[in-house]
Design a protein around this nucleic acid. Sequence first.
DNA 1: TGAATTTAA
Length: 754
Amino acid sequence: MPEEAGFPPAKRFRPGAGPPRRAGSCPPGRRVVMLLAAGGGGGGGGRRQQPPLAQPSASPYPEAVELQRRSLPIFQARGQLLAQLRNLDSAVLLGETGSGKTTQIPQYLYEGGIGRQAVIAVTQPRRVAAISLATRVSDEKRTELGKLVGYTVRFDDVTSEDTKIKFLTDGMLLREAISDSLLRKYSCVILDEAHERTIHTDVLFGVVKAAQKRRKELGKLPLKVIVMSATMDVDLFSQYFSGAPVLYLEGRQHPIQIFYTKQPQHDYLHAALVSVFQIHQEAPCSQDILVFLTGQEEIEAMSKTCRDIAKHLPDGCPSMLVLPLYASLPYAQQLRVFQGAPKGCRKVIISTNIAETSITITGIKYVVDTGMVKAKKYNPDSGLEVLAVQRVSKTQAWQRTGRAGREDSGVCYRLYTEDEFEKFEKMTVPEIQRCNLTSVTLQLLAMKVPDVLTFDFMSKPSPDHIQAAIAQLELLGALENKDGQLTLTPIGRKMAAFPLEPKFAKTILLSPKFHCTEEILTIISLLSVDSVLYNPPSRRDEVQAVRKKFISSEGDHITLLNIYRAFKNTGRNKDWCKENFVNSKNMMLVAEVRSQLRDICFKAWQAAARVPASTAGPVPWTARGARGSIATGGGTVLTSGVFSVSRFLPNQMSMPILSSRGDTESVRRCLAHSLFVSTAELQPDGSYATTDTHQPVAIHPSSVLFHCKPACVVYTELLFTNKCYMRDLCVVDAEWLYEAAPDFFRRKLRASRN
DNA sequence: TGAATTTAA
């Protein structure tokens, strides 16, 4: 293979769960039950007699579907699997990709009469997966989606009273746990893709374990927990669920050849380029290539280089279709990776880690793995989040490799040596140890977890890390400390009702005081969705020219508000989006988020009204001489005397959703009052430093304030990349900040010192 | 003064 990269002979692997193994030797779990012997897909050798389905009469599906289900590797283990699962409270299921575990196990349980008393939940880290799995399983059961089999994701609940098998995002189940921490609706919770260790799955581990224990103590319907993982590191899962047995299922993956480089590569981009063209010159052009790089800029640059080189290849060499792939690419361009290349042309996809799990492309024969990712790390000392290019973990490398063997045998070029690979971390550090914990902490407190610091996390974040989250929540007024016991304040409870970062929830809850809830709802929706602005580096001048008309000297929040208004005024027009370099898919999402938040404003009020007066506390908003229009929440009527409110309030009202009309100052005041922890001030030397810790920071070049030097700003995000950048800034008056939090700012603000 | 991985509620 590529001479410069210097690949020695390949090794053969069956990917999915990791390196090759012999049946007897692994996996390393404690009580391992091998449910399916090797050779499942081969067809040769002694074919086992197929066990009949639970009730012969319960087979209403046409033969084709039935045959298809029976042909899955997992089917041969069905009887054993059910026998095991019937008697277990908890189990860990290690199933390679292609084993059929996610679609079949919920059906087996249901058909076997396990967990029929209530609902079987299957969680997924991603929305699309939850939806497509539910669709698939309801097809297999020949039922209408939303009847026996349904799904619940944000903005979309396709379930009914008949639903017994429910696919949902892990974030959604977590949200449900806030109002019912015992998960009473469910007889069984299957946590799928557990190896990905998303922050939501990790919190769910603890929630589900606690619910299981508590239900047992109370003599209620037992809760069965099944953890499903596609990688070998299941020991931790098993230990966490008091030594739950590990059931092992073999999958059906195609063999993949792996090449390592002979020498370490100091320039992985160059090595990737060489590899791509080497493959291109040698392999049949119907075989596509997938390259893993780290980010947009790198990918765009590499795409351009590839296209340039492809133009000047010798005769007889196939042509090349180069497609970049990353999350912020407009949806229409993302879709192109699924289309086949024209005849005589090879498809080369250059992607971020989005193609590791989120997007699956068929027909990939070759994977080129640079061994690098861009990922967030958390620095507990400074409390800063750092985004940096780093080495992948072994798990990630296997995941990438597996992308080559989905339909047929494949090849993976690893642009690092085998020795280097051996030094990679075994697993990716779980997200819960890598990011800000304020949201999680608020959610746990809303579930009335007695002590967040001792919460039974599978992989504990450091105490400093949790303490920092508690401190943030205290500053936001969400917490109070009653005799050493942390509890939520009434505002804190309302904050937990919003599917937002706590500081954004607080902003909304404060907005009535500034008569600008309409505007704040829009701004917060825009901030809580992926960027609606599309900035192709190659068309920078065009973008700048077009964006000029929206720009506000008051900062990014007001600018975003202008863009949303323009979008709305054009009737949510897609062509308008395209002309203005606005990501229409994200913009539509903003509108959905906004209406959800608006609903919650009404509900949060109603919920607060139900709390007895003694504990309700003062209501955070008062309607003094209303400017603008008042919207009422679907005829909400509150009984007077149920809660304590200021005497200025009328008897009958709901949370006032007012518009400040053209008054942007009150919007900025509102932001100052809720984001005061995140302020930075101009220093005498022209640089910026945060007010709180005097961390040197800079205005991000994407900000409309990049060329300006306002004295004082609040920002919504701080991220360390090349520098410590503030993103989404709003110009504020130092006086407003002082007014918002006099204790916090005493002797801190430059303005108050001078 | 110069640039963002990804997912979810």
